[in-house]
């Protein structure tokens, strides 16, 4: 179809720079195809992560022309190919090599969040009864493929490096899926306010914008959690009210 120039960031922890590669682009190709082609043709050791190539595993996160995206779901014919296409690693995490970043921080954060704690089963066979209506809100959050693009785009992590005090949009979504689960009995609000830094979120909605699963992160997960934190810590009236009408 056409030869296209790609500017790919090459380097490691110490140093790195953009290098230009030319490759033939054909119909329907996505950015990941181009990266693979470059890898096979002229840069055998170009590091990139990928697995499913169908937007289901969330491995191939990178920044394409400055926006955090999945390489496997970014079609080249939707882009301006007259200019070089830039591909760089996620910027909220340390680089391992080339397009691969060290995302282990995310796994450490998840471990610190209180796990699912269901109420006693409703039935003798250990099962529960739940209405579809009641699980739908949680199902939206559980679509998350953990690509960490929301973490990458969030300026609290990306620019201000609050990794020690702030868990990022992904883990607010994770918290929301647990907190709003019809069976869950754990209370995570104090953690959210204190150690997980939900107050750092200033509602840029960038996480929602980049989410490849179209999860409405800000409006459906973060803000409702902020409101629950308000109930618990900032609003004397609802606090009083909830004494008579508990949440669960």
């Amino acid at each position: 179809m056409a030869r296209v120039t790609f500017k790919i960031w090459r380097g490691d922890k110490q140093a790195g720079e953009f290098k230009e590669y030319n490759t033939e682009v054909s119909e329907g190709m996505v950015v990941l195809d181009a990266v693979h082609q470059i890898q096979a043709e002229s840069a055998n050791d170009l590091a990139c992560r990928w697995n499913c190539k169908a937007g289901k595993c969330g491995s191939c996160s990178a920044e394409i022309n400055g926006m955090p995206r999945l390489m496997c779901m970014t079609r080249l014919n939707d882009m301006n190919l007259d200019e070089p296409v830039s591909i760089e690693p996620m910027r909220a995490f340390p680089v391992m090599k080339d397009l691969v970043t060290d995302v282990s921080w995310n796994y450490r954060v998840k471990k610190k969040i209180k796990p699912f704690k269901p109420r006693l089963p409703d039935n003798d066979d250990g099962s529960w009864n739940m209405q579809q209506q009641d699980v739908e809100r949680v199902q939206e959050f559980r679509k998350c493929i953990e690509c960490f693009l929301c973490q990458d785009v969030c300026h609290v992590l990306r620019d201000h490096h609050k990794h020690d005090e702030f868990i990022g949009p992904r883990y607010f979504v994770y918290n929301a899926a647990l907190e709003m689960h019809p069976l869950d009995e754990e209370d995570r609000l104090a953690d959210l306010k204190k150690s997980q830094g939900i107050g750092y979120c200033n509602i840029t909605k960038c996480c929602t914008k980049v989410c490849p699963e179209n999860i409405t992160i800000t409006d459906n997960a973060i803000i409702p959690l902020k409101e629950r934190v308000v109930d618990e810590f900032y609003d004397p009236l609802t606090k009083l009210f909830r004494i008579f009408k508990p949440r669960k």
Binding site: G16, N65, G66, N80, R91, W105, K162, H163
Partner: peptide, 20 residues
């Protein structure tokens, strides 16, 4: 103390590779 978790330097104000 915040651990240094980013080796790519943060961009100054208004800088981005976004083309839009």
């Amino acid at each position: 103390m915040s651990e240094d978790l980013s080796s790519l330097k943060r961009r100054p104000w208004g800088m981005t590779l976004r083309q839009d």
